[in-house]
């Protein structure tokens, strides 16, 4: 049998190689591919356009970022960013399966977890570009003094996007047709962005508020979109901002919020890796 050194020499590669070679190549490849995806481009461009319009509106209304531009951008981002993120994630694995390239990918010297991580990193970088473009456009359009306040939205907005990229990736790993994945992620978007809060409201009405504020708060911040909205509205408008808006939600501590974000980002990712590792490619 040929030794590993001989193999490396035959491959023309140095004997010492950085780890995660396939994962790194995959992440770069994914980033390039995603930045050419027409749906991602269209949704990102629309987000950037509307975000810059919000910035301009805030400037013309002589408002300040905390009062007008920031909350409007939060609402806009909570609609668009999950959509871009799901569009980025939904075909990651199932697309490869349909193109018959998944077997080719997994026949390389790579672990399946590394494939999931490589896919995620590439798509996450594409998401960060889309978010940066959108919020960057808003910052450029907004009044000069507001840029710093709006810059504070970058981190949580990216976290929101990463959570949905991860969810999209999980869907992509579990289904066997790309069209099914597309339908599922659209349903997920409607559920998390629109119907979740309506559902909570319906529960509150049906139980006449008997389910308790603690549980309602937990359910609101359990949804990444809800967590994103309430934490940013609170940070932009101060402690009483949520109460002023009629939202009786107690915000969890910063570490608890970090844990929720981590759970939403890394949980689906871990499940994707487990699902792909268990799955035989028939």
């Amino acid at each position: 049998m040929t030794s590993s050194t001989e193999r490396s020499e035959r491959a023309g590669a140095p004997a010492f190689a950085l780890p995660f070679r396939v994962g790194r190549a995959l992440a770069f490849h994914e980033l390039r591919e995603r930045t050419r995806d027409r749906w991602v481009i269209v949704i990102s461009a629309l987000f950037a356009l509307l975000a810059s319009a919000v910035g301009l509106y805030g400037r013309s209304a002589e408002g300040n970022a905390a009062a007008i531009t920031g909350p409007s951008l939060v609402t806009l981002a909570s609609l668009f960013v999950p959509l871009v993120a799901l569009a980025l994630g939904y075909d990651a694995i199932v697309g490869e399966r349909e193109r018959n390239t998944l077997g080719l990918l997994l026949s390389m010297p790579v672990g399946r977890t590394e494939v999931i991580v490589g896919k995620f990193v590439g798509r996450a970088l594409a998401l960060c570009l889309a978010v940066g473009l959108g919020l960057g456009a808003a910052m450029l359009a907004a009044a000069p003094g507001e840029a710093r306040t709006l810059a504070a939205l970058l981190g949580p907005t990216m976290a929101l996007g990463l959570a949905f990229v991860s969810v999209g990736l999980l869907v992509s790993t579990l289904v066997s047709r790309q069209s099914t994945a597309a339908s599922v992620v659209v349903a997920i978007w409607f559920l998390f962005v629109f119907f979740y809060d309506l559902g909570l409201l319906a529960i509150l009405v049906a139980t006449e508020g008997a389910i308790g504020d603690e549980l309602v708060s937990s359910l609101v911040v359990g949804n990444p979109t809800g967590l994103y909205r309430v934490s940013l509205l609170a940070s932009l408008g101060g402690e009483n901002a949520l109460t002023d808006l009629g939202l009786d939600v107690s915000l969890p501590s910063a570490s608890a919020r970090g844990a929720i974000w981590c759970a939403w980002i890394f949980g689906p990712l871990a499940l994707s890796a487990a699902a792909l590792s268990r799955r035989a490619l028939r």
Partner: peptide, 28 residues
């Protein structure tokens, strides 16, 4: 390995496709 009826990404050039697999497999 060459799979049956393989369909590489339509939005990549031929060189980009090969360059990804070259990078992943450590080819110069």
């Amino acid at each position: 390995y060459l799979p049956e009826s393989v369909a590489f990404s339509e939005s990549s050039t031929g060189r980009e496709v090969v360059s990804f697999f070259a990078a992943a497999r450590g080819a110069p």
